[in-house]
Design a binder for these strands. Sequence first.
DNA 1: AAAGGTGGCAACCGCCTAAGG
DNA 2: TCCTTAGGCGGTTGCCACCTT
Length: 338
Amino acid sequence: MGHHSCCNQQKVKRGLWSPEEDEKLIRYITTHGYGCWSEVPEKAGLQRCGKSCRLRWINYLRPDIRRGRFTPEEEKLIISLHGAVGNRWAHIASHLPGRTDNEIKNYWNSWIKKKIRKPSAAAAPPNISATSTDHQQSGQFFSYNANQIDLINQQDFAMKPQNIQDTLFTSPPLFMFDTSSSSSVLQGLAGDGSNADRMLPDHDQLFQETAGVLNSSIWPQMNQHHQDHQSTVLVQPASFTPGLDSINYLPPLIDNVENMVHIDHVQSCSNINNVEGEITTLDCLQRQELNQWVETTQQCPSYLFWDQTDDQGPLGGDESLPSSSSNMGAMLSYPSPL
DNA sequence: AAAGGTGGCAACCGCCTAAGG
DNA sequence: TCCTTAGGCGGTTGCCACCTT
């Protein structure tokens, strides 16, 4: 044995498909359809197992396949959906016509994850080595610096979404999204040197406004989560937008200090423009204000959206990437209030 | 120029589930 | 109820082109 049960036949070819094999498979499927994949190899004259044929057809040969670079819209959708359902690639793919789960999975594993985890070197100090068990036991809320978040994203959010509930948080991470085309975000912030209008929106207001950002099919889930946990959403907008790189908004610095969440440069939505997810203006909430707010309201922020892109554009200027990637961020779910 | 490193991606592996006998 | 089989799915591997040194 040693091979998959469907591939135990003798002379089963493996590896990359040749153009001739592709042609045989296409010819057979287009004339006969694909009722039973296990019969396909023999009838099509292929030395492959049925499973391999199925995979080749679904992921590469079927006529409605959509190839080429993902559009910014697709990228947004993938990020949002992944935040909502985790690594359920088939589910995500079902929302992107012509895209396969394999393609989305590869896409995610290649540069999206890499982009998210990109360490914000300037803002991320040596991290705290609190374990997930510690978090579980404390029963309070927990926080991470960028490196830790990176670790969570890679190992827990992406790989084992089902475990996150058991180990780190009382609820799973729900959303990830970017703020692409949000130059107006920074424009709105850029001229704001005063604290005059730095008012923390109240709980419900903030929630409703964030609803505008996440106005999608996954929003009801967040709404429900909010109701269940009486949670609040805080947003950290993009820190970098091509052409506006002089604006230096640091990613959040989150320290885990005795039941207190410390966050640098947390910025909360004050105005959401439209359903496309564009944020037009934002109020800036500083660490002190956040802490004050936490104390006053006895609320723990349930979601944080931070920007991971303090670098110089998409993957150091790789122009093959969609520009919107420069503003990618992610949301974390924090445990419910105290 | 060559060797080693890296990333993208096609394909495979193993597990799960449903269906049918 | 158990066993077999096929299909579906997510994780992983390995090839290959490209990049770096």
